[in-house]
Every structure is written in C-alpha cells, then in structure tokens.
Design a protein around this nucleic acid. Structure first.
Length: 271
DNA sequence: CATCAACCCTGAGAGC
DNA sequence: TGCTCTCAGGGTTGAT
C-alpha cells in the first residue's frame, strides 16, 4: 500500500498511540527485515528507548527515539499496527516492539509485512539512510522551476524518472500514473522535452494528487487494507478498458520500466 | 548515465 | 474444488 499518502497516513495513525511510550524490548521474528545494525546490537540499543516523535520522510516512517532513529520502509506490503494489552503476534508480524507507558500499561507496535520486502533500520544518523533522497513534493522547495530544469538535465523516460526516489521522493506507481494523466503527459515521453508550462502543470498535478490521497487516508487495494478510499477516485490506475474521465477513450495498460502503466491514448500523446 | 532483467517474497484472482 | 499461471503499491544489484 505504500506511497507517500499511505505512509503519511500510517505515521499519523500510530503517532498518538506510541509517542511517550518506552520500548521495553524488540521481538525480531524475521531476521532479514532488519537492514542494520546486527540483530544483537539492535536489540541491545533499542531496549529502554523512549519514543519521542513519529514522522515521514519520502516513503520512510521516521520514529525518533531518545538516542536513535528507527526508520521503517513498508515497501510493497508492510504496515505498522498498534496493539494493546497481552501481545500475541499475528501472522506476518516481522518485528514486534513491546511498549510500556509511564503508568506501566503494556502495548505493542508491530511491523507486519506479508511479502517480507519491508526493512527496518536503527541508526543514530538518519541521513545515512535518507541522504540520497530527492525533494519532498509537498514542500516549498519543490517548485515548477526546479522540476523544469531537472527534467531537462536528465534525459530519461518521464515515468521511471518520477519513480526514482533520488530524483523526487514519495511518488509510486499509482500516483505517478494519476498525475501524468492530469498533466496530459505520456509516461514514455523524454523528460528533457517537457516544456516549462508542462512542468508547471505537472508540478501542480503531483501536489494535488498527493494531497487528495492524504485527505482520503490513502488507497486501499487487495488484501493490504488500511481504511483509505482514494482507490474509488482513480482516473486511470487499474481502469484498463474503462472510459477516460476526461474524454471517454478507453484506458490502455502498458509496461513502462517493468511497471504496469495506465494511460489515456487520447489525452496522453507521445508526441 | 540510461535501460533492463533478475531478485527479494506471499497470496489473490483468473483460467482451465 | 483444485491446479497452474500471472500479477501486485518498492527497491537493489549487476549486466549491457
């Protein structure tokens, strides 16, 4: 489920339930979920750490602890779930953080991840993990001028470039298809050919789609469900053969950069 | 530097 | 029902 709006929703959801709690210990149930450090050091360092804040950077959930930062990437099927009282791990729980409140109440924060693609880092310097990420699309520094200039410099297919987290952070397969449709740009178009005007429209489309995704608590697809309903408002994603909401042409599905890609053949012309 | 295939995994849904 | 096949929101790595 995890693109920027879904990750933002997860972070906002768990924050009030975990800030102020202390991690008594971590139960690492699938070793490979831990990216770094070693399991032994991880368990030693995290025990006794108070959770000070929960935020999001790109598609990472950043959990600020007293002396470290706990970074979580949900990848394809990850989720963070808060549990109260007696803890019995659920199917696909990969790491379970056992928590204690000041009053002594027990609860838990579980990283549940069916496909095991998700990763967790514990580090004192989050920049070692987040350092190469591109700008946040909802921040002020993501301007049309910046986008225009950087699309021009990189000579790449538009969609794979927008998915490249070192170029721009937070977009995933769904939201990229949606914003390219709004901007009437073809996913295979060369980034260097995008005009200043088109860059302006694309920049605004990216921000509006992400904001609406957040407003609707993200999109819920397949069995990875979290209560969002943005999936009911897709313009092209997952709508192959259905009419384009703008012109009525049949939405087509193609493969771009090994990802399923949805376009309106009339609104999004290659040239 | 850009592009692509393989890989990391499990499970849902389609087709037979 | 049950089997096989394809596909899935992400990202890394190594080859070309």
């Amino acid at each position: 489920m995890p693109e920027l709006p879904e990750v933002e929703t997860v972070a906002r959801t768990i924050k009030p339930d975990v800030v102020g709690r202390v991690i008594s210990f971590a139960d690492l149930r699938w070793t490979r979920t831990l990216a770094s450090p070693s399991p032994a050091l991880f368990k030693k360092q995290i025990a006794g750490q108070e959770i000070l804040d929960v935020s999001r950077r790109a598609k990472f959930i950043v959990i600020r602890l007293k002396n470290y930062n706990l970074l979580v990437h949900l990848r394809m099927s990850g989720d963070l779930r808060v549990g109260t009282g007696k803890i019995k791990p659920e199917k696909h729980d990969r790491v379970v953080f056992h928590l204690r409140s000041r009053g002594g109440a027990e609860s838990s924060l579980a990283f549940n991840d069916t496909r095991k693609f998700g990763r967790v880092w514990l580090t004192d310097d989050p920049e070692t993990v987040l350092g190469k990420l591109g700008p946040e699309p909802l921040e002020k520094d993501f301007t049309a001028d910046w986008l225009f200039e950087n699309l021009r410099i990189r000579k790449r297919q538009l969609k794979p470039l927008l998915l490249d987290q070192t170029f721009l952070s937070g977009l995933g397969n769904i939201y990229t298809d949606e914003c390219l449709h709004i901007a009437r740009l073809h996913p295979l178009a060369n980034s260097s050919g995008v005009t200043r005007k088109q860059a302006q429209v694309l920049r605004d489309a990216i921000r509006s789609v992400l904001r609406e995704g957040i407003r609707r608590n993200g999109a819920s697809i397949d069995w990875v469900y979290r209560g969002g309903d943005f999936q009911n408002y897709f313009r092209v994603y997952g709508r192959e053969g259905e009419p384009c909401p703008v012109c009525g042409s049949k939405i087509q599905k193609l493969t771009v950069g090994q990802r399923g890609t949805h376009v309106c053949p009339n609104c999004q012309r290659l040239r």
